[in-house]
Every structure is written in C-alpha cells, then in structure tokens.
Design a protein around this nucleic acid. Structure first.
Lengths: 204, 204, 204, 204
DNA sequence: TATGAATGAGTTTTCATTCAT
DNA sequence: AATGAATGAAAACTCATTCAT
C-alpha cells in the first residue's frame, strides 16, 4: 500500500466516522437540533475539523443522503437479483417486503430520505437522481408485471406510484409513531403486504 | 353587537391571524425554522404582541394543532353523518376519501399533524387525545364492517391500522413530493382507493 | 364624610395596597426580579392601573422607601419618648435594641433601605432626608451622652457612626445570611448589645 | 517558554480580563444590571467570546467569587502567619484590621461576597465552602482567646459571630454609603477597632 | 491535517411603559 | 379610574462558520 493510498484511506475513514455520527444524531434528535459541535464531540474531534471534510452542514447531509440512497438501492437490487428467477408473485412480494424492511432497519436514513422535509439547498438536488435509480428497480418490476397483465391496470406508472404510497404509509407511520399501540409488528406487516398485493393484483 | 362582544371578536380575529400565519410558515419552513419574529413580520405586528396571545411558541403550536385536529374530526364526522344510512361500501369509501381529501386540502395542517415529528413538549400531550377522537370514527366504522364479516380479518385494530397506513401513504407522499411526476391526481387517488378497498375486503 | 373625601380615601387605599404588595415582593424576590405585572397580579389589578398611582417603578420604590423611613423614625422616636425620663443607660440600650428590632421585624424594609444598593434615580434623592430625620434621634441621644462624658470619646459624630456601624453589622448579617448557623438569636443580640455598650462606654 | 505555555497564558489572560471587567461592573451596577454584552463591550470582544471561556453568566460569577474568597483567605492567612508569634492582643487586632482593610481595598469583591444577596444558582453552592475556609482563621483565633479566658464569654461561636457582625457593619457601611459625611476614615476605623476589642475583651 | 479563538446573526422571551378608550 | 392592546429595548444564549496557525 502506498503512502498516498494510506492517507486516502485514513481520510475516508474519518469522513465515514463523521457521517455515521451525524446520521445517528440527526435521526435521534432531528437535523435542526444537532449542532456541528455535537457531531464533533461524538467523534472526539473539534468542530473545525468537520469543515476540512465537508464544506458545510448541508454538504454533510448531502453525503449522508447519498449513502442512504446507495444503501437503499443496494438493498432493493440485491433482493431483486436474488429472486430474479423466481415466480413473479414471490419476486414482487420480496421487493415490497425489502422496502419496508429497509425503512425499519435504517430508521435514521428513512426519516431523512423520505419523511423529513429538509430545506434542500440547491446543492442537494443531486441526490434526487440517486433516489430515482433505486425506484427504477421497482418500476421495472412493475413493468414486467403489467406486460403479463398481472395488475389491475396497465399503466406501470400508476401502479408503481400506488405501491410506493402503500409501502411508504406503513413504513413512515411505524417509524414516526413509535409509541402508538400497534398490533404485533410482524403480523401487521404480513397482513399489510398481503392486502397491498391483493389490492393491485388482477382477479380475486 | 355589544362593545364587549366586538372586542372579543377582535381579539379572536388577531389570534386567528397569528395561528394562520404560523400554520403556513411552520408548514412551509418547518417549526424549527420559523421564529416568532418571522410570524410577527408576516402579520405586521411586533413579536411581543404574539406573547400577549400565546404564552410561548409551543403554546402557539398547541393551539394550531388543536384546530387542525378539530377540523380533521369535523371533516370525518360530517362525512360519517352524511353517509350514515348508506350501504357500507359507500360509507366506507367516503370516509377513506375524506381522509385523503382532508390532507390535500389542508396540507399545512396535515404536515404538522402527521408528518413533522415535532419535539412535543409535555404541555403538548393534550392534543394527542384530540387526534384519538377523530380516529375513533374510523375505528368504529371498521368495527361495523368486521361485525358483518366485511374484511379479510376479524381484528378491527389490525384492519384500521392497515387502512391508516395506506391512507397516510398516498396523502403524505403527495404533500411531501409536490414535484414528483405523479400521474393525474384524481385518477391516482381513485384507483388507490379502489385498490385499498379491494385489498382489505373479503372475497374477490 | 364628603364624596371627595371618600374618593380620596379609596385612592389612598389602593395606593397602600400597591405599596404593600410591592414591599413584600421586592423583599422576597429582589427589586429587579419583581415585574410590574407581578405586583399587579398580586392585588388583582391590571399593570396599567399602577401607573395611575405611580409615575413608574422607581417612584413606587420611592414611596415605599419613604414609608419605610417613616416607620423607622416612628419606631425609634416612640422608643425614645417612652424612655425619655429613664436613666441614660436604659435609654441608650433601648434605642440600640429598637434599631435591631426594627430591622428584624421589617426585613423587607431594612433590606431595601440599608442593604440593597438600588440604583437610585435622581428622583429618589429625596428620601435620603427622611433617613436623616431618624438618625437625628440617635445622634441627639449620643450628644446627650457625650455631654455627661458617658462615652470613650467626646466626638458625637464619631460615636454615633461607630454605633451605627455596629448595629447595622449584626442586623444586616442576620437578614442576609438567614441560613448561617447562628447561635440562638436572642442570646446573640443580647450579648451583642452588651458588648457594643461596653465598647463605647467610658470606664470598665 | 513553550508555545503551548504561551497559549495557555494568553487564554488565562483573557479569562482574567473578563473576570476583572465583570467584577467591576457587577459591583458598580449590580449583577442583574450587567449584561454579557456590557462586559463584552468593556473588554472589546464579542459577547459570544465570553461563552468560550465561561459556560454562562452564573459560572462567571462563580469564578469571580472564588477568586474573591481566595484573596480574602490569603489576606487573613498572611496576616495570621505574620503575627503568629506576637502577643494575642496584637494578633487579634491585626486580624480584625485585616478584615476591614480587605473590604475597603477590594470594595467590588466585598460587595459581591458579603453585601449583594445574589440569587445563587445551585451550581454556586461550591463557593460557600471557600468562604468557610477563610472564617476558620478568625474562629481558630477566637478559640485561642477563649482558652486563655480572654473574652467576656467562653462560647467561641458566640464571640466570633459578634465580631463578624461588628467588622461587617463598618465595612459594609463605608462601602455602601460612600457619600455619607463620615469622620476621617482612618480615625474612625481606629476607634472602631478599639471599641470592638474593648467590647468583647474580659475585664475593663 | 487539526484546532483554538472569535464572531455575526439569530433565537426565545421578559419587561417597563404608553396610548386610546 | 381602569384597562386591553401594543411595542421598543434588551436580556441570555446558541450556532454555523471563518481564519490563522
């Protein structure tokens, strides 16, 4: 390993530390309530140091969201690849399931990515494209379904938007209303998915 | 109209102005990003004046949420009353429709009530009860359905939580992602409702 | 009683109420920590009303101090009158005792009059004269003593200033350090007075 | 001098500047009337800077009082050490004299330490112990006196409280009533001390 | 590269006071 | 005489950010 490479890795490591600390704190207390100092304290660096890695707080958020969307994409994609050869029913359900699973396993990211309406700087617009890449998986799967007349409606945009809505609904509620008297999570999600599929699937 | 009554109305009017300005600004920029000064500027009063009507920023939020939940309740209840005698299918759909309609007609309120995860002061706990009252309508309607074996599952809590999830999903997405290339709203919502009902309704 | 007299009395009554409330609150929480609103609340009038009786907060303090000095004067004077014919020893001691007694019985006043260093508006200068009147009693008594060579020093100003210092010392400490582990108050004061007298009195 | 040491000194220097400015202003106008901005203005820094050195206004007061009590202790202790071997009369008088001297030389400190009744935060309780340390000197000296039957009363607590009262009396009056027509200071204090000693000393 | 020092802009809130009625 | 409404001024404090080293 060359010297410059080692330095590069160290640098990436600190950056990663910062992003991790920020993700946790942002999710825990909300973006607005987390000061640069608090992030710095958590990783035991000075606040100034963060500015050596990120131009400002917003860029830090940007990086964080990029990683979130990347992880989101990886999650959906790997599910997709794993089930590629399976029957459509299974493929479809596994993707829906993966979406919810992602949200509940990475509440921090999901909140920042899909719930919080953070005042996006112009510089933040970039990440929207990242999100699109992940959605493409869902859309192409739906397209596959429409082609074989699987869904109640032939418009793939309509169907995928409906599905996104339903997936987002339960995911965001479970995250936001942690203390609501939900029925048992697993059972709720199971029935929810069944219902969603029943709702969009052709026939009865 | 007596003098005291006029005064009372004036006072109520200013309070209303404050709440309206706050609602709009909170929803637009987020509770944290809206200062008392900004609210005051909007209604062209001094910041101090707001404190003559509300003890502090949190109480202002409280009032605002209370009004939101009240309106939410009224909306659902009037829909319920209107369709009381109708066939269950119609009754049921009209309530679901009313929920989404409320969210889209009062985006500001909906955001503050169901999307923003505002750090609620203890003093704010009161409004949670207001919300419960509104939900009671949905729940009792679902109960009516379960009694006649309308739904795929006999547990009214399960069914109503699923329905809330689905309603919240589309409503919050449409509000949060205003600029997303949605298919035509009306058509989307129509199909969405059909799908939700198909998904939870017994039989095929 | 004429109508104007009744009105005059009512007016005086409210003024008195205000002064009483203010005295209590000022002493309890400190002049700076008592707002006009708090005084108003206590007497169940509006803050504005106070301004119908006093030009501003400082004038209210002025009135209050005036009453305090008046009471101080009355206390010393009545003690003086009562013991006029007594032996000098007794007369003298009773005045010293009355001073301390006044302080401890009217901690509120004493604090405001002799301890707090309130930023006296020019308008407040007037009360200083009131205080002088009260001191005059002490001084004239001391003068009587010096004339009969009672004290260790012939200068009546010197002696009375020394005595004031000693009286103020114990009085202010007992008021300010309420929680100090004092020996029993009565005994402390008794011995204190004995000591003061022994200290300034001629002979042994 | 190493670089880190220089930095350390600079930091200590600014802290000292802040404390000095605060001491003077607090004493002059009262703790409540001095804003962080006013202190900052005096030392020509921004108000924020003060917060880089002290957590808040109360901590600044705390530091200041700590220094005051430390100086108080040093003053009494060095007087005590210097006169350790002297005759009790001299030793005793020199301590009394040192107390008054301290008050008049450091009026600002004395006011804040013994006259102002500042609403002490819980965090401030610590300094009370500092004060006790200083008093210990006076008390132990008195104890020495009582053991040899020097005083009019065998209770060392009684005697030391009486003495404190008398010392505080003249000191606080001279500080508070700067403009009172005092007889010549030096002479007043001399006679005062003589009188205090005569008052508590056995025999005549 | 890491950071200590510094700050401008902004936050919520309190208060004495005025004015029209 | 009493007061509701309104406000300018100021308070303590926080924060993202810059700069020199």
């Amino acid at each position: 390993m060359s010297i410059s490479e080692r330095k590069h890795r160290e640098k990436a490591f600190i950056k990663e530390q910062i992003v991790n600390a920020a993700t946790e704190l942002f999710s825990l207390y909300g973006y607005e309530h987390v000061s640069m100092r608090k992030i710095a304290d958590k990783i035991e660096y000075s606040p100034t140091t963060i500015y050596n890695y990120f131009k400002n707080k917003n860029e830090l958020l940007f990086e964080l969201l990029k990683q979130g969307y990347e992880l989101f994409y990886q999650t959906l994609d790997s599910t997709y690849q794993t089930n590629k050869k399976e029957h459509f029913d299974l493929k479809f359900k596994s993707i829906l399931s993966a979406y919810i699973e992602f949200g509940l396993s990475h509440k921090d990211y999901y909140k920042l990515m899909f719930i919080s309406n953070i005042d996006k700087d112009d510089s933040l617009m970039g990440v929207e494209n990242e999100r699109a890449k992940a959605f493409e998986i869902l859309i192409s799967l739906v397209r596959e379904g429409t082609e074989s007349n699987y869904f109640i409606h032939p418009d793939e945009r309509l169907i995928s938007q409906m599905i996104w809505g339903q997936l987002h609904g339960i995911t965001s509620l479970l995250i936001t209303y942690k203390d609501f008297p939900w029925v048992q999570h697993e059972s709720l999600i199971d029935h929810y998915l069944e219902s969603v599929i029943k709702g969009v699937k052709n026939g009865g």
